[in-house]
Simulated assay, not measured.
Amino acid sequence: MLELKNIKKSFGGKTILNDISLDVQDGEIISILGPSGSGKTTLLNLILGITEVDGGKIIYNGEDMTNVPMEQRGFNIVFQDYALFPNLNAYQNITYGLKNKPGISSQDEVDDLIELLGLKEHLDKKIEQLSGGQKQRVALARTMVMKPKILLLDEPLSALDGVIKESIKDRIKTIAREYHLTTIIVTHDPEEALTLSDRVLIINEGKISQYGKPEEIINRPSNPFIREFILNQLEIKRSNIFTLFQCEATA
């Protein structure tokens, strides 16, 4: 569905991304994982169209999108800070984009999405009255009513913790599965990437270190960086992740 071919990007003479190539299948959840400064957010911005590539191609459904403006690509992003309008209530935020494109989602589709995300009782609240998890769900709903071709999420769980974090993670999975929506997530947290995604792209110093299924990365890290970055950080939680993969394998 989405293919990146030999993507390169530099800023001020410094190489940020060097020869990045990968494919994303229709309906997949992909996480872009890496330490701070590795180039993962830059890669997300290149896919979205905020930033122009210096070299390589972005192909979507066989069409070259490399030089297509962001507003014509049909990809939508939920930013890390949610970017909600504080002067509008939750419902007005959710439906804001429909003012310019009213035919994209019907009222029934909007209502179904609100129900799916558990937002019905919060629709009249101002943004300042919402919790972090509720803001994240409103931001997801606002993006989803526009029926994006690809959903991009920038650190969607970084401001959340505990039960709320797990709840949002489950809702992202549910949305991706029910809407058969290709989803690309940027995260710095190995646990998030490994438990949320179908495949994980790990970037280090602007290059791909490994791209594969979570169980492949856990069981067959491709180099010392992967072992240190992934496995050492997960030492306390590894048993839970291994149990998850074992359960899925026998399900």
Score class of each variant (00 low, 15 high):
8 K>V: 14
62 G>N: 01
95 T>R: 14
35 P>N: 11
106 S>W: 00
169 K>R: 14
157 L>M: 13
122 H>T: 08
90 A>H: 04
162 G>L: 13
142 R>Q: 07
131 S>I: 07
82 Y>T: 02
188 H>M: 10
64 D>L: 03
15 T>S: 09
125 K>R: 15
28 E>R: 05
84 L>V: 09
73 R>M: 05
97 G>R: 15
126 K>E: 11
177 R>I: 11
60 Y>C: 06
84 L>N: 14
190 P>S: 08
134 Q>W: 11
109 E>T: 11
99 K>S: 15
190 P>W: 02
139 A>K: 05
21 S>F: 06
105 S>H: 06
76 N>E: 08
68 V>E: 02
186 V>H: 01
68 V>D: 08
38 S>N: 04
213 K>N: 00
196 L>W: 01
137 R>Q: 07
74 G>S: 09
140 L>H: 12
28 E>L: 08
4 L>I: 01
128 E>A: 12
157 L>E: 13
232 N>I: 09
240 N>Y: 15
30 I>G: 04
198 D>E: 02
176 A>W: 14
123 L>Y: 06
231 L>N: 03
17 L>Y: 01
85 F>K: 03
186 V>E: 00
235 E>D: 14
70 M>C: 10
99 K>L: 07
31 S>G: 00
23 D>W: 12
192 E>Q: 06
186 V>F: 00
224 P>L: 06
125 K>E: 14
